[in-house]
Design a protein around this nucleic acid. Structure first.
Lengths: 191, 191, 191, 191
DNA sequence: CATGAATGAGACTTCATTCAT
DNA sequence: GATGAATGAAGTCTCATTCAT
């Protein structure tokens, strides 16, 4: 492994360690020393790779966030029915969340004092909503859905998945999508 | 105002101040000095009323939480239709959240290092879900709803309201409930 | 000693200690720990009295500076001849410098990274020059001196005294003033 | 450019960079990284040319000081009148100071923790004074000056020039020398 | 020669908490 | 009850210096 790769690898290990520790102790509860120890380096080195502890959080959101995944999932979906796409989306989304488990709690703990972090997080969530909203609009245009407020639908769905993840519920993706598509009223049936 | 009332009053003011400061800076970001200053007293005095900073958080959740409100809202509702009750519930729930605004972010920021706080918070959320789930079960039994997973419905609804509050969206309660009751599929119509 | 006096006294002791340590090790070389130890307290307490290490330096200049002394020395001097006043001034000025010994080196070491400190120092020096310049102008007006550039005279005299102090020379005040009043050219004699 | 010249050249560029950065941030405020960056190299390389950061300061004083210049200016001056030589000296001295601008503040900031640096600086200043004192003694012997304390004269003059430089005053060299030669007393006139 | 990753020591600062007054 | 001086532990961050590549 050359010098260059070694550095890149070290950076990734620091992000791994940071995510682990943030998840376990919370962003504010985690100390730089904790993270460094988890990565097997000295605290000083952390500052060779990241400007500050907050910068680590921002980097995590940028580089380990699931926006890329979400984008990929919806890229070619505009023409396919929500009934097919959404369960798949939820399933994949859940998988991504599960894989990068800690990120979820990270997103919900907007407690950091630092404005940069908070702003980064909000931008992040907004972007996710926008991606899903765009897809939903396409489906409404296609006549499949009649959602009046696509933004509300998108926000609620994403939040619901994340929340169930956060609380450790083992929600069935199909059930969730079914609820969103068909509602809970007794008189309603699929045509 | 007697000794007794004076003390009681002071305690309430401390809780007020703590909530304000927690909201603004997050639980970990807020210092005891901040809280004391916001309450117009000295840090030392805070320890006459609360054992520790963490005790303040727990007290806030116990005494300022919206469980009482939720309980009251659902108490006499078991026999009334969800179509009527839920919008009312969402509306009132939102109002309560808005009034104790900060609590929402407090609940979502599970970042505190202290295990007591985290546990208290989780118990709290679970209790809220249980209350709503019980009502939904009653409505399913009454034949109004056909929800398969009432816990999922309850969790999703509560989280959705809280999240919209957290993100500052001005979601319309009626739209939200409509989405939950009727779904988004185009072929579906209210009878 | 009441609480109030105790605090005041402690603050003064911190300034004393800071001056000592700054003199010995330089502003940048001195650590907060050094200062605290010299004052017999913990580093944390220092921050109860001063916002930062830099604030300590500024406070030293404000409260231990010799401007007050200079002002007092020149207050009633406007009508008295420079030949009498200046040696007296130099003598007293040297005494003040000697008493607050360290301040001199503090003033010359403009090395602190912090802009606030540097600015405070410059304002300080400028004020001293202005005070002496005003007196000299009065003597020129009185016909005793014919200085063309009073600011130059003031600056040079003050700097010369400070510099001799800084370098540990035991300059005779009378000789110094004599040099400034009569010059060094051989053809010149007092009338 | 051969190996040898290349190395020499690199060394000079490092000294240039070091002086610039020391001036801007002070000796203690400047980091090795700052200096390396200013020289366009990496921190590690700096240690091929200098043993330590302090060694850089000492080298600067030895190799970039104005002693050489002062020596040259006074070398052939012993027989020429102070009235001619001193303004010329001040002018050239100021020019040298201006050219190596930063050195002045470097000399006045005796703040470095390191004793070696401090000692080197003091020796340096003393040597400058001795050079000028020797010249003045020659002029006294020649009957031009009647200075009683040539060391005082030399010290004061050099310090005055440096100080005006340090404080950014645009002092006129002729006025300064005039003050030193003729004094400020009203009754005195040039013969 | 040259790089820059890595270290270790230590700097400044913050803060929950205690306690004499 | 109330104050705020005082502490001790810890936290974030900096930096001169070394060394494998």
């Amino acid at each position: 492994m050359g010098r260059r790769e070694q550095a890149e690898w070290r950076r990734e290990r620091l992000l791994d360690a940071a995510l682990d520790v943030f998840v376990e102790k919370g962003v504010d509860g985690a100390t730089v020393k904790d993270i460094a120890r988890a990565a097997g380096v000295t605290p000083g080195l952390l500052y060779h790779y990241f400007e500050s502890k907050d910068a680590l959080v921002v980097a995590l959101m940028r580089e380990r966030g699931f926006l890329a995944e979400l984008r990929r999932l919806l890229a070619a979906a505009a023409d396919r029915p929500a009934e097919t796409v959404l369960p798949e989306l939820v399933r994949n989304y859940r998988r991504v969340l599960a894989e990068n488990a800690g990120l979820v709690s990270l997103f919900f703990s907007a407690s950091s004092t630092n404005r940069h972090v908070r702003t980064a997080m909000q931008r992040f969530v907004a972007e996710g909503q926008r991606l899903l909203t765009d897809y939903l609009e396409a489906r409404v245009a296609a006549g499949e859905l009649r959602v009046h407020n696509t933004r509300l639908f998108a926000q609620t769905l994403l939040v619901a998945v994340a929340a169930s993840q956060l609380m450790g519920s083992d929600t069935d993706p199909d059930q969730l999508v079914h609820l969103f598509l068909n509602g809970a009223a007794a008189g309603q049936e699929k045509s």
